[in-house]
Design a protein around this nucleic acid. Structure first.
Length: 717
DNA sequence: GGGTTAACCTTTTTT
DNA sequence: AGGTTAACCC
């Protein structure tokens, strides 16, 4: 078979990666170096060049969007059905495995997926049952703790009992939470991954089956994998060792969410005889943009080493604007965009990027005033909206009466006279009888243990659900949703609500019906269409707005810009404390992540990069003088053209080139050092300068530690 | 059960 | 500041 079309459009390194001998391969793919292209062409090559059957291939991504894109590109490249090819997110693939092997995984059927909001509610219920005050035991922090543990593969029973009462209580909460999930068949996001990992670890025959089946495993955005995802990958590839991982350590920006860049460093250790291929040619940005970005990221330590280059011309210099305040900043940006549009360019070729979403408002106001259409990314997603979650809860109850989260959510929405007192009685009954809220509710009705008024209300609700279920028995998905919205009273409930928001809610509910119509389940199982739809809703929160793919100026946080590119980019709010963010300065290691974020932002730009900061910024109601972001001073002056309209504005302060503290030369990453208390270890990271300098050492005895350099008294070994 | 006031928080986000 | 959420009151 002629497979030249797979290679035609690739450069030498890309070809090398695509056609690498089967075995562990780590592709270090710089920004704009054709990462997705390499992944898809690799799969095409495996199928067409190596005759690997599609079912033997597993491709993992982080987002649904990336998975869809990969599938789409592959469909263009290959002319065969892709139904048997497993491409999906970590969570989606795990769900698929768990559905196939629920009994083996120790999960009841059906089991339900909790999104973070559901998880939060459940945790609050658990706290309440333990009579714990939320002020002392903030649910958000507990949620964070539980997820943290799960992402590291630690269940409550693995944790030490703890010496103090605080520890013991936390452990108890985690334990109860797990018991509750197990009993009621609830799985949070981390559980999907952990459960699947345990399934593979504990079940030899299943493990061997899948190890055998997936001869080739490919991973996108490898730098974003967390501990458990990486373990999952290793166990699946144990037999054939055909793990093809693509990532960029310089674009690791999700450490705060448990991602471990270290996985990239471990790859070569865990997969001996792996080959490492670097994609360093950038096809996106001009020379100036790329060089500036390279200069910034060069300040990070412990990088895997990679230098992007381009064939493109130097292009325009970066333009830096010192605004007087955030209003002036917005004015400048919008003026430039106006100008850009007048020259006949598209609005959606310009992007405004910022560190925190709160910064979008001022730009929105200005764009609105100038009547320039824009679109803000981020914010509440479709399936996360309250009205949508209400509707889904009704649907969930129809699939599974025993879903407590769904029951709690809509038992009194719309209001039908079931108050907290009534619910407390039902909860108590459920707890003592070890049954679901639904069953407890029915028992109360049978036993007449409540005032008549409450009894009537409860029995109305129970009847309503039963009735809805009967009435929609033979209907298709769209009709089911439509019927439930109308007959449950939800639609009327939201119609009665006043204000502008109500309109949007009705529209969203109508949109849900449309979503039902458009939903095509992977397995064509009409019986299960509804429950598949519900799973899908949990895993794919949906875009913020319905498709508004008009020609709009793009506004988004730096994080959400990863993977995208724009001819013109405005990087705004480049001020110490805002970017790098204050909270990232407090925790060691985070500063470098901020710098990577800056690198990500800069490398989004294709032709022109604007960088702005305000000299005074109003934040949280206070106006404060700012200092320019340290990242600005890391860009060599030769790439920058400063723009200033105000005679008051200060020129960019450039500290004299601080030669890295000469002492620190002895303590570069990789060096062996000795500490009085911790013993010997290897330097793995450095940051800051002078008295501020911090050093991370991986001690043989006590593991990695951050130390203040000036106090640590380290000696080179 | 709805409406009002007081308290609170405020980085980034996917699943 | 601004927005949301929880507690509180009729």
């Amino acid at each position: 078979m002629d497979i030249s079309h797979i290679f035609d459009s690739l450069n030498k390194e890309q070809r090398e990666a695509v056609a690498a001998e089967p075995g562990p391969v780590l592709v270090l793919a710089g920004a704009g170096s054709g990462k997705t292209r390499v992944l898809t062409h690799r799969i095409a090559w495996l199928i067409q060049g190596q005759q690997i059957p599609p079912p033997s291939i597993l491709a993992v991504t982080f987002t649904n969007k990336a998975a869809r894109e990969m599938r789409g590109r592959l469909a263009e490249l290959l002319d065969i059905p892709l139904r048997n090819l497993w491409i999906g997110t970590f969570h989606g693939l795990c769900l698929r495995l768990l559905r196939l092997h629920a009994p083996d995984a120790g999960l009841p059927e059906p089991f339900e997926i909790l999104d973070s909001d559901d998880q939060y509610r459940l945790i609050r219920r658990v706290l309440k049952e333990h009579n714990l005050n939320e002020d002392y035991w903030p649910p958000k922090q507990i949620q964070w703790m539980i997820n943290q543990h799960k992402e590291e593969g630690r269940r409550a029973r693995h944790l030490p009992a703890g010496h103090d009462i605080q520890q013991q209580t936390l452990l108890q909460i985690y334990l109860t939470y797990e018991e509750r999930c197990q009993r009621d068949g609830l799985t949070d996001f981390a559980e999907l991954l952990l459960r699947t990992l345990e399934l593979l670890q504990n079940n030899q025959s299943l493990r061997e089956h899948y190890q055998q089946r997936f001869r080739h495993v490919l991973v996108d955005e490898f730098q974003d994998t967390n501990t458990i995802q990486y373990r999952w990958l290793r166990i699946l590839t144990q037999q054939h060792k055909h793990c093809f991982a693509v990532g960029d350590d310089d674009q690791s920006i999700y450490g705060w969410r448990g991602a471990k860049v270290e996985n990239m460093l471990s790859f070569e250790k865990d997969f001996p005889e792996s080959s490492v291929i670097r994609l360093e040619q950038n096809y996106r940005s001009t020379g100036n943009i790329l060089n500036a970005a390279n200069s910034v990221i060069a300040n990070n330590t412990g990088r895997m080493g990679k230098n992007l280059w381009t064939d493109a011309t130097q292009g325009l210099p970066l333009r830096m604007y010192a605004a007087r305040n955030e209003i002036d900043e917005a004015r400048f940006v919008v003026d430039q965009i106006s100008h850009w549009i007048t020259q006949g360019n598209r609005r959606d070729e310009a992007a405004i990027l910022y560190r925190s979403n709160a910064q979008s408002r001022i730009f929105e106001e200005k764009l609105l005033a100038e009547q320039i259409p824009y679109r803000v990314y981020g914010g509440l997603r479709f399936f996360e909206r309250a009205e949508i979650k209400d509707a889904l809860a009704y649907l969930k109850l129809m699939v599974n009466r025993d879903s407590d989260p769904a029951f709690e959510r809509v038992v009194n929405v719309p209001a039908r006279g079931i108050g907290n007192r009534t619910l407390e009685v039902i909860r108590e009954q459920a707890r003592t009888g070890q049954v679901s809220m639904w069953k407890a509710a029915r028992e109360t009705v049978d036993r007449q243990t409540l005032p008549t008024r409450a009894l009537m209300a409860i029995s109305r609700f129970v009847d309503l659900i039963e009735q809805l279920s009967r009435e929609t028995d033979a209907l298709d998905l769209e009709a089911i949703i439509d019927h439930v919205l109308k007959r449950s009273g939800l639609l009327d409930h939201y119609r009665k609500e006043k204000g502008e928001r109500a309109e949007g809610r009705i529209e969203n509910l109508e949109e849900l019906v449309t979503a039902g119509r458009r939903f095509v389940p992977e397995e064509e199982n009409r019986e299960e269409a509804l429950s598949l739809f519900l799973n899908n809703a949990a895993l794919e929160a949906g875009e913020g707005q319905a498709e508004e793919w008009d020609d709009c100026v793009q506004l988004m946080s730096l994080h959400s810009s990863k993977g995208l590119e724009f001819p013109v980019v405005f990087l705004c709010g480049m001020e110490e404390g805002l970017f790098p963010h204050q909270r990232s300065l407090e925790e060691p290691g985070r500063l470098e992540e901020e710098r990577r974020l800056c690198y990500v932002g800069m490398t989004r730009a294709m032709q022109q990069l604007y960088i702005c900061y305000a000299e005074i910024r109003q934040l949280y109601g206070r106006s404060d003088y700012t200092r320019q972001s340290r990242f600005l001073t890391e860009i060599p002056a030769e790439f920058i053209e400063e723009i200033r309209s105000s005679t008051f504005s200060r020129p960019l302060f450039r500290p004299p080139q601080t030669p890295t503290d000469h002492v620190l030369v002895n303590f570069q990453p990789g060096r062996q050092v000795r500490h009085k208390k911790f013993g010997e270890g290897m330097v793995i990271n450095l940051e800051g300068q002078g008295n501020q300098a911090r050093i991370q050492v991986n001690f043989v005895d006590v593991g990695p530690k951050w130390l203040i350099y000036s106090y640590a008294n380290l000696e080179p070994v």
